[in-house]
């Protein structure tokens, strides 16, 4: 354990991981705190890209080079395996993003909104109708009917 509170070796050896964690948590915060569905997906993408950075950071070797073979036998290559894993993850990520965006378009067509709170209100109204005009869900329902 370090003698002092701030150990420079610990900082230079780990600052990369810490900044990645900061970015990851920013993505998580957007996903859980914002009600807009598109913004939730943007937050999820942020989180995902940060996880990629974490994996790629682990494969880096100081003084290494990109894992493309050279003629010099003394060359140090960074670890190619995290790169392969993350290439697959990027492509799977775009597939899930596309599916989520398609779902958002359908939700907007059916509910007339992409705000999670308003969707929930409409859902409650459908399950357990409350005809009083003060219920905000009725205004939303009327707006959807007006759109059609």
């Amino acid at each position: 354990m370090p003698d002092t509170m701030i150990n420079m070796d610990l900082v230079t050896g780990h600052y990369n991981y810490w900044l990645v964690v900061v970015l990851m948590m920013t993505g998580l915060f957007i996903t859980v705190s914002r009600g807009n569905l598109i913004k939730k997906i943007v937050g999820l993408n942020l989180f995902q890209t940060s996880v990629f950075m974490l994996y790629i950071s682990m494969g880096k070797i100081k003084g290494g080079t990109a894992p493309i073979l050279t003629d010099d036998p003394a060359t140090v290559y960074s670890n190619p395996l995290p790169h392969v894993l993350i290439l697959t993850a990027i492509v799977v990520g775009i597939a899930t993003t596309a599916l989520a965006l398609a779902l958002i378009i359908r939700i907007r067509e059916s509910y007339g909104t992409i705000e999670a709170d308003e969707i929930l209100e409409i859902e409650h109204q459908i399950d357990d109708p409350d005809p009083s005009p003060t219920n905000p869900a009725n205004a939303l329902m009327a707006r959807i009917r007006g759109n059609r």
Binding site: T49, F52, I56, H83, I86, L87, I90, G93
Partner: peptide, 15 residues
């Protein structure tokens, strides 16, 4: 800068 050039151009094109 982390030596992952393949990942970099995939991220630039896809992301």
């Amino acid at each position: 800068s982390l030596d992952a050039v393949d990942v970099a151009f995939t991220e630039a094109a896809v992301g």
